[in-house]
């Protein structure tokens, strides 16, 4: 019989190796597949710098224009809360930092765990709100595919199990911690094959649109 300890050991050991392999493999495969398609050089005489335009847009596109903010306020605010919350939880919880330290060889300061806890609740609520909006808003419901709900589910579960683990809501702790790690592993496996890839590809996308605009001397 597999005890919760064995389970935790499995998710921390072999399962994490598999998930890491698929995650890293999928990402580098997809990124190279995208970039290797290449593009034609622009032969028109530039009015500005592609480089500056591209770099600027990678950052500037994070701020919504006033006019679109008015019409899409809910999506923008909820998405902002979710993304910020998710990154705070991912990168500023000390146990997570330990993981990055093991990978990168260096760590950084974390936030108090109780603060992370509050942020997790807010992030979960934002995700929930985004799901309800996706189900209710005609455009989002119309556009949504299985992939969108899958991506939502794996993200939500990763956060939820993390929350449950912190609160020891399922006993024994090794089981809930194992479930949390497992849900993250599922997220990692799903990641390269769904829209979750936007985590990386948005930089390429913004670069391209920004570089084109920069070439034409337009500040996006």
């Amino acid at each position: 019989m597999m005890t919760s300890g064995d389970f935790l050991f499995w998710v921390r050991g072999p399962a994490f190796q598999i998930a890491t392999a698929i995650f890293a493999f999928g990402i580098s495969w997809h990124l190279l597949e995208i970039l290797s398609l290449g593009r034609k050089p622009d032969r028109s005489v530039p009015r500005g710098s592609r480089m500056l335009g591209g770099l600027r847009t990678i950052f500037s596109r994070s701020i919504a224009d006033k006019s679109i903010f008015q019409s899409s306020a809910f999506t923008i605010v909820a998405s902002y809360i979710f993304h910020l919350g998710f990154f705070i939880v991912l990168f500023l919880l000390v146990p997570h930092i330990m993981l990055f330290q093991a990978l990168l060889g260096f760590g950084w300061a974390g936030l108090p765990t109780t603060l992370i806890d509050v942020i997790t609740i807010i992030t979960l609520l934002a995700l929930l709100a985004l799901l309800i909006h996706r189900l209710k808003n005609p455009v989002r419901r119309f556009l949504s595919t299985f992939e969108d709900y899958l991506a939502w589910t794996v993200t939500f579960l990763a956060l939820l199990t993390g929350y449950l683990a912190y609160h020891h809501s399922i006993q024994p702790y090794s089981l809930v911690l194992g479930l949390h790690i497992l849900s993250v592993e599922i997220l990692m496996v799903v990641f390269p094959f769904t829209k979750l890839m936007h985590t990386f590809t948005f930089i390429i996308a913004r670069w391209y649109i920004g570089a084109n605009a920069g070439h034409r001397g337009i500040q996006l």
Partner: peptide, 27 residues
């Protein structure tokens, strides 16, 4: 406890390389 038990940095390295190879082949 939050750190995986195996050498996942190495796994990630190999996987990145393998993925790159597949990506280039697909390219």
């Amino acid at each position: 406890l939050s750190v995986p038990t195996g050498d996942f940095a190495q796994t990630a390295g190999y996987a990145l390389a393998a993925g790159a190879a597949v990506g280039v082949a697909s390219g």
